[in-house]
């Protein structure tokens, strides 16, 4: 039976491995034709901002983000108040091939799903 799943991403990109491992889990599910919806909330919104991780010898997480639309995750949902709180302009978020959709009421958004995987 197909379930409606949301991946909730709340980690900033490089301080915690769960940011990367969350995206890997999303891509793995998508590769099995079970692409979840994705919501970036809290520090998770920093995953969508500009990065230059070569400075700390890390792989660029943006590559995983940019792979999402290729695996049928074409809409990236982003918590609007998390952006504003962090002084990020929504226009600054660009992911080729993906639509960025701001979510104002995350509570109503989350409850539409059968499962939420938190990362």
């Amino acid at each position: 039976m197909s379930k409606n799943t949301l991946a909730l991403c709340r980690q900033a990109p490089y301080g915690n491995a769960l940011a990367r491992e969350g995206l890997e889990a999303i891509l793995a599910a998508a590769a099995m034709d079970q692409a979840p919806a994705v919501l970036f909330l809290g520090d998770g919104v920093f995953q969508l901002a500009g990065q230059k991780p070569e400075a700390i010898a890390e792989k660029n997480l943006r590559r995983n983000i940019q792979a999402l639309p290729m695996f049928d995750v074409e809409t990236l949902h982003v918590c609007k108040s998390s952006l504003l709180q962090r002084g990020i302009m929504p226009e600054a978020l660009q992911v080729p091939g993906a639509d960025i959709e701001l979510v104002e009421d995350c509570g109503s958004f989350i409850r539409k799903f059968d499962h939420v995987l938190s990362f």
Binding site: A28, H115, L117
Partner: peptide
């Protein structure tokens, strides 16, 4: 990781 996706589809509840 496919086992996580498969379990998500097969389970009534997922708790992290």
């Amino acid at each position: 990781l496919g086992q996580l996706a498969e379990a998500t589809a097969a389970s009534d509840r997922i708790v992290t």
